[in-house]
Write a protein that binds this DNA or RNA. Sequence first.
DNA 1: CATGAATGAGTTTTCATTCAT
DNA 2: AATGAATGAAAACTCATTCAT
Lengths: 217, 217, 217, 217
Amino acid sequence: MPLGSQQQRQFHARKAPRQTRSRSTVDAIKQAARELVSAEGFSSSSTSTTLIAERAGVSIGSLYQYFPTREAIFIALFEETSAQMAATMKRVMVRILDQPLDKSVPEVMRHLLALHREHELVLLRMVAQVPQLKLATQPISFENMIFDSIRIAVGQWTPGLSLRELNRRAFFLREIILGCIHRYINEAPEDISDRTFIDDLSAIVMHYIGMPAKRRR
Amino acid sequence: MPLGSQQQRQFHARKAPRQTRSRSTVDAIKQAARELVSAEGFSSSSTSTTLIAERAGVSIGSLYQYFPTREAIFIALFEETSAQMAATMKRVMVRILDQPLDKSVPEVMRHLLALHREHELVLLRMVAQVPQLKLATQPISFENMIFDSIRIAVGQWTPGLSLRELNRRAFFLREIILGCIHRYINEAPEDISDRTFIDDLSAIVMHYIGMPAKRRR
Amino acid sequence: MPLGSQQQRQFHARKAPRQTRSRSTVDAIKQAARELVSAEGFSSSSTSTTLIAERAGVSIGSLYQYFPTREAIFIALFEETSAQMAATMKRVMVRILDQPLDKSVPEVMRHLLALHREHELVLLRMVAQVPQLKLATQPISFENMIFDSIRIAVGQWTPGLSLRELNRRAFFLREIILGCIHRYINEAPEDISDRTFIDDLSAIVMHYIGMPAKRRR
Amino acid sequence: MPLGSQQQRQFHARKAPRQTRSRSTVDAIKQAARELVSAEGFSSSSTSTTLIAERAGVSIGSLYQYFPTREAIFIALFEETSAQMAATMKRVMVRILDQPLDKSVPEVMRHLLALHREHELVLLRMVAQVPQLKLATQPISFENMIFDSIRIAVGQWTPGLSLRELNRRAFFLREIILGCIHRYINEAPEDISDRTFIDDLSAIVMHYIGMPAKRRR
DNA sequence: CATGAATGAGTTTTCATTCAT
DNA sequence: AATGAATGAAAACTCATTCAT
């Protein structure tokens, strides 16, 4: 019988695991998925459900007990990672916000770089390669969290900006920060050390934060 | 010569179209691929060879006469687009290079934005979603061309920079420019008009170009 | 361990069937293949995986669970048959070896004929038509087993032969015996009864076994 | 439209080539086919019509002008080769028949070996691998010719044999001779020189020719 | 006659998903 | 709950053959 047509495709996890055993089953699956994605990207031949289950030491049957769909695994993975990162960053931000810009910005950059390195592949590859993510998890939590933090920071340092202008600056800053970090990790350019990378990125950021509001004609 | 011996996967076009008829077949295929990718991304269910052939009004047989592999189609597409964009940009650059920075930079940004809009999906989606591209098309021509242009421009405007520093600036500038343009097109944020987008981006760029060489400790 | 890395074409069975259910699936597939080959030879149109699966009353999916490749099916078939035949012949040989030549040789011929009749098509057609077999199954067990038995028998009956001469005689005998049997089964000539066939073949064989070592000039 | 159903499949050459140009086209095709078969066997991927046409320096269109079917090419090839071999053998036979057995038999074997070596692959591989041949070319001319010659020779040297017995001996002799030659060429066993091979084969043959008619019980 | 672009039925193979045990 | 055998729709790709030019 033709599948996938008889019901709305569910993208989210099927049942909340309660017992310890299934707890670890879910984790094993996610971990296996993470590893496979890291090693090979998302091509469905290298991260097939069978492979994931195998690596997790779990039968496919069990896998489908907890995830209704292959995609669900990756979405869960993504959300988890994303949430973790957001939480970590929040902690960092709180600790730092009252310091002067030239201390706090590099500090934040450092943490962001480390964080992305740690979760490198899941986050970087996934967003790019799994289009469904954009739709499924509307608030891409981490990016949004960054966006909000930036708005707040910019608001503090350059008061009197309109909402539009605030959003605009946050838009650019987020893209500059995350974009440069992504590419830096991906390309690992020989000419640039972590140190210079963070210095330069911080300089750019600080300058843009401090740029006076435009006088519109 | 011994035929049929295990030939490794070919990524490039199988035979060059000679007659006008086949010329147009190839074009139809590429166009169909372009459209499907634009509409649906790369998931092999939405851009299967069958679908491409169908949309191109061509039999699968014909498709495989010219492209040995599904991937080959996309690579061809990518290379073509990439080359076109590079050529266009070169022309623009030449026309502009002797103008003062505050004229030429926004001008270049304007052109880049237009160019990316035009070729939006092929370029944007492809690089992210087709991992093989990185390997198959050694010099991702467009990005490289941008990189080189930036180095030249920076060299002119901030003479006396070391090679390393030149490369570093080009690295940041390329990422900032292309990254912001990509995201701007993708997200189409309501708060930002094309005009402000270009102004802001230009401001950031100009500032970074002019930043004095760092005094290292 | 890195999965998904280009694994070279496997010719051997994919997973060993554990449960009784899969046992019978594998058997059904092999049986279906055997029948189709018998009826039609190996042309991939008459023994396509689809056809085999269909006849086996099994889905193609299942087929590919156990055989990674169409070829793998035939190789498995061949090995199985070959091994069975070798085992049977060994038993026969043991029982017979101490009898006088003029008893044992016809006896062996009789068994060989029967054996080939039983496994007729798999063995006969396959070796000729599937070139990969030669490479895949290093010792074509049955033929080798015959070869060895012949060497032993000849050694017993005509002692004092050099190794070379032993090999030479075994070469001729094996070809004569197996060749004549094959053709007899294939052509089923009206003029020749099983009885006369075996008599004549035995006579030829016995004579050759007993031929004195050559005096080389 | 589905082909192959609207008319009886024709296996023989489509039109008799008259002009010199097409003469050479046909030859080129046959030659190309011969080479490809020699190099790679019959797997339709290594001897596809396209490949044959290509190697022959001829368009597929032209190929199909002269051969209605892929098979037709091979059948033509086979018949040609077979006829040539038969002709050659006939000449040899005539020259030799009045000599004493112990001269003529080795002589014939020598010629047969040479002949098979020359046409090695076409003949050997083809018979085994192309089942259609058996049906299409009813009188496999060469084998038949050998068969007949043997009957004549045996009739001369052992007069008074019944027709059945004649046929029987010819059956065995043909298989022994051709079988051993085929295998000798295919396996090229190190232990056996051409000389010993021919000596032994001749001995076997002569002995069998001379074996007295059986006294039936 | 020659050409080679086009065709498409038919192969092999994959992989997400189900379901009997 | 867990298992893993079974499923089959769908994908990639091939190759003999036709036919417009």
